[in-house]
Amino acid sequence: MITRRTFGALAAVPLLGGLRQAAAQEAFPSRDLLGLIQWGAGGATDVTSRAVTPHVEAALGHKIVLQNRPGGSGAIAMTAVHTANPDGYTLLYAAENPLLYGVLNLSRIDFVQEFYAVNVLARGVPVIVTNPDRPWRTLKDLVDEMRRNPGRVRMAGTGPGGQPHVISSMLSTLGNIRHISVPFDGEGPGLTALQGGHADFMPAGSGAAAEHVRAGRLRALAVWNTEPLPSFPGVPPATADFPELARFMPWGSFYGVWVKRSVPADRRDKLVQAFKTGATNPQFVELMQRNGNVVMNISGDEADRFLKRWQSVTTWTLQEAGAARTSPAELGIPRP
C-alpha cells in the first residue's frame, strides 16, 4: 500500500521530465533559462545583468531566472556553469575576473577556450580618485608623493586581480613607486573608506565614483583613458601626465554573458541575437552611459579578440609586478 502510493508519486516525476525533454528538441528555448551572476546583489555586475535581462527576455520569449552566486572571485559561478549540461539553458553573467583565474591559481578552466561570449555588454573606464583633503591635484602629484615617501601612501584595493590591483601594477611600471594596498570588500566599501580618510587613493570604476566626485566628496585625479570622459568634465586622461601609459589602454573591467562553447551553434546564435537586441535597447544604453560605461555589444570572434588582448595585457602586467602565481607563459598567453 505504502509502496504503491510512493511509487505513484515517484513515477509522476519521470513523466514530466520526459515530456520536457521531448519538447526541448523542437525549439529553443522552450522553457525558462537560468542565469548565474558571478557577483553579489547590488554590485556593478548585478545591476548590469538585471538591467539588460528584461529586454533579452522580450526578444527570447522566455524568462531568464537570475541568481547571484558570488564567492571565490566568481570562480564558483563559473564552475557551476561549466559543469552544467551544455544545452544553452544555463548562462553565466560575468565580469572580467575569469580571465585572471589562471594566473591567480583560482581555477584551471581556460575561460576563453571553454566559454563562448554571447555578449560583452559594456566596459567601464577606471578613474583615479582621492580624498579631497589630500593635497594632490594631479596624477603626477600622487606619483611624486609615492616616490618621495615609499610605502606610506595607502591605496584602497579590492584584492588580487581586482581593478585597483591591476592599475597600480600598471602605474608601478613608471618606476620607483611603492605604496600600501589595503584590500576592501569591493569598490563601494573602498570608496567609503576613502571618504572617511582611512585610505588615500583608489582606482575605481567611473560608475561607482561619478556621483561622489560630482558632489565634491572625492577628487578625480585622472581617468584611465587616452582621452577625457564626458561624465568627468575637466578631469585629464592619465596619459596627459604619463604618455607611456597609453600602451595599456583602453583598459577596464567589463560585463557580459557567456555559455559553454559546447552548446550547439544554433542555440548559441539564438542567444546572441536575443542579447544583441537587448543590449541595443535605449533604456539599457542610457543606463550604461550614465554610469560612464562604454557600450560594447560584441559577441563571438569579435569578443574573443577583445578578451584575448585584455587577458594578455593584464596577465603580463601582473607577471611583471610579481603578482602572478602562475606565469602567463605557462598558460600559453602571448605577450602583448
Binding site: G40, G42, A51, A210, R214
Partner: peptide
C-alpha cells in the same frame, strides 16, 4: 545595496547629490 542598484536601473543617481 540592492536598493541602490534598483535606483540606478530606474534612472536615478544614488549618491551624495
Amino acid at each position: 545595496a540592492v536598493i541602490i542598484g534598483a535606483l540606478f536601473i530606474h534612472g536615478l543617481k544614488p549618491g551624495p547629490m
